[in-house]
Design a protein around this nucleic acid. Structure first.
Length: 431
RNA sequence: GUGAGUGUAGCUCAAUCGGCAGAGCACAGGACUGUGGCUCCUGGGGUUGAGGGUUCGAUCCCCUUCACUCACCCCA
């Protein structure tokens, strides 16, 4: 046997028996988002690296060390451009909107995307190098009503999935006028307690101060528990935006927990940030990668990427994690209506023809293409979950009639082969 | 990138102190001439992840390596 070639590390195959769950999730995502007025955008999986460096932030882990980046082939002597497999969907969507001058034509735009993303991290439960996200974004509305509607859409999508309890945590990071002051105060405080911080956080103190708030180290948690909180530093417009948003969520009966420790990994967030988290553990749960959907407001991103000044809010949901939570739901493939069993070469050809005709009319028909004995084919029919089975042999070929057997009860009834489709649809409607 | 755990049949797992590699499920066939499920019988299936070492002898002990899983980290 030739040497086997395995899949690339961290990249998983999704086999047909899992797709029932995936299709269900994708259908719910599309259905929910389209009811909320979002239209789908599909962008390339490959983008110029510069898009993510500028859009997501050069200092972020995602861009700094997790992208699949390589040089596209240039011409003979010319060097190619650096390109990357997309690690997230927002920057490409914004790029596309700018490129097609969407903001020039529509003051308010609602887009969603769904597809694979790539990050070269060490894999773990719910974290893979190729993973799938569905994201929704509202461009053009700075009012907290946009944040509220977006969160409502996310909540509606998640609650359509039967994945156990999901809690919404929310926070405001402020904007360019107040966040710097907060960070300054935070750095000041953390420096005074630096000795109690883990080595990792002592380093973060300089590079990415907000992340210290996110640390799970017990000692760090004690320190940050008494740290100055963002809400004390929010400027008046930011404070009002946040307060109004919380009020709107109350009005929508969406439960939330204000969590001042929420920090997002992408640089572009301003004001609102939120996470939907699952606390299911163990079998059927998520382990430590338990954020199932997260997002926030990014009012400067469009401008940073060369577009007009357009405010935006968005979220992204991790489909792999939702699939993990849904795995217990047996959303299997649909069984066939009819399974054809044939005996002998003549009958086999007739069955092939019959199956083709019925399928073209819209029936779901299966058969055992390997042929074989009656018993084997019947077993196959049983296993397929088919509602009916029909055996075609010499006598049926001669008479043009056959017994249609209902598998659940074992009862049989003689039908004329030429009217088989009507027989099937008749019993379909009376079912 | 760091750490820990696990690798035995398609799947889930056994194998005593280092002593002939097994079971259940699944698959195939039969008991039952052209009617599935239940029961019983039979059968095919293995480089014990790979490579090396210790030993008369290694699934078992040691080293290396690879893969997977979980956690750190990071994030959806």
């Amino acid at each position: 046997m030739a040497e086997r070639i395995s899949a690339v590390k961290g990249m998983n195959d999704l086999l047909p028996e899992q797709m029932g769950v995936w299709h269900r999730i994708e259908d719910q995502a599309r259905g929910t988002l389209e009811r909320f007025g979002f239209g789908e955008v599909r962008t390339p999986i490959l983008e110029k690296t510069a898009l993510f460096v500028r859009g997501v932030g050069e200092e972020t882990d995602i861009v700094g060390k997790e992208m699949y980046t390589f040089e596209d082939r240039g011409g003979e002597a010319k060097a190619g451009t650096m390109v990357s497999l997309r690690p997230e969907g927002t920057a490409p969507a914004v790029r596309a909107a700018i490129e097609h001058n969407v903001f020039g034509q529509e003051p308010l735009v609602r887009w969603y995307y769904l597809g694979p993303m790539f990050r070269r991290e060490r894999q773990q439960k719910g974290r893979y190098r190729q993973f799938y996200q569905v994201g929704a974004e509202i461009y053009g509305a700075s009012a907290p009503h946009a944040d509220a509607e977006l969160i409502d859409a996310g909540q509606a999508f998640l609650s359509s999935l039967d994945i156990g309890e999901i809690t919404l945590e929310i926070n405001s990071l402020g904007d360019e006028s107040c966040r710097p002051k907060y960070i300054e105060a935070l750095v000041g405080y953390l420096k005074s307690r630096a000795l109690d911080l883990c080595p990792e956080c002592q380093r973060r103190l300089q590079t990415n101060t907000l992340r210290v708030l996110d640390c799970k180290n017990e000692s760090c948690k004690r320190v940050t528990a008494e740290a100055p909180s963002v809400d004390a530093f929010l400027c008046e417009p930011c404070r009002e935006h946040f307060a109004t948003l919380l009020g709107l969520l109350d009005g929508l009966s969406i439960e939330y927990v204000v969590n001042p420790r929420i920090v997002r990994g992408l640089d572009y967030y301003t004001r609102t940030v939120f996470e939907f988290v699952s606390h299911l553990q163990g079998e059927g749960g998520l382990g430590s990668q338990n954020t199932v959907c997260a997002g926030g407001r990014y009012d400067r991103l469009v401008k940073n990427l060369g577009g007009p000044e357009v405010p935006a809010v968005g979220f992204a949901a991790g489909l792999d994690r939702l699939a993990l939570l849904s795995a217990k739901n047996a959303w299997g493939a649909r069984p066939p209506e009819l399974f054809l069993v044939s005996l002998g070469e003549q009958a086999r050809q007739r069955a092939l023809l019959l199956a083709s005709e019925l399928r073209r009319k819209g029936a779901f028909v299966d058969q055992d293409l390997r042929g074989g004995g009656l018993k084997a084919q019947m077993r196959r029919a049983d296993k397929s979950g088919a509602t009916f089975t029909l055996v075609i042999g010499e006598s049926e070929l001669a008479s043009g009639k056959a017994n249609l057997k209902r598998m659940a009860t074992g009862e049989q009834r003689e039908v004329v082969l030429s009217s088989l489709f009507d027989e099937l649809s008749g019993s379909r409607s009376t079912r």
